[in-house]
């Protein structure tokens, strides 16, 4: 299956679905030490739901961090 994280494509040949936690591990290490928030296909997924929310082929994950803003 293919998923997208912040627009970057990831191919996973042996899975039909993975948890958000597992998907984030593809993208970066040590997620527990970082400040970020996640949306899957445009819907917010809270931190406590990373383990019980799954992504499947074609899903898109946004990982957002704080920046300066007006």
């Amino acid at each position: 299956m293919n998923i997208h994280i912040n627009g970057q494509s990831y191919s996973l040949n042996h899975e039909s679905k993975i948890t958000v936690s597992a998907a984030l591990a593809l993208y970066f290490i040590e997620p527990q030490q970082s400040t970020f928030a996640v949306a899957v296909n445009g819907d917010f997924v809270s931190r406590e739901d990373y383990e019980n929310t799954h992504v499947i082929n074609g899903d898109s994950i946004d990982v957002l961090l704080p920046i300066q803003g007006g």
Binding site: N6, Y27, F28, I29, P31, V63, L65, I67, Q68, G69
Partner: peptide, 9 residues
């Protein structure tokens, strides 16, 4: 402030 796509790494 705001949020944007970034890699936490």
């Amino acid at each position: 402030l705001s949020l944007k796509r970034q890699n936490p790494a």
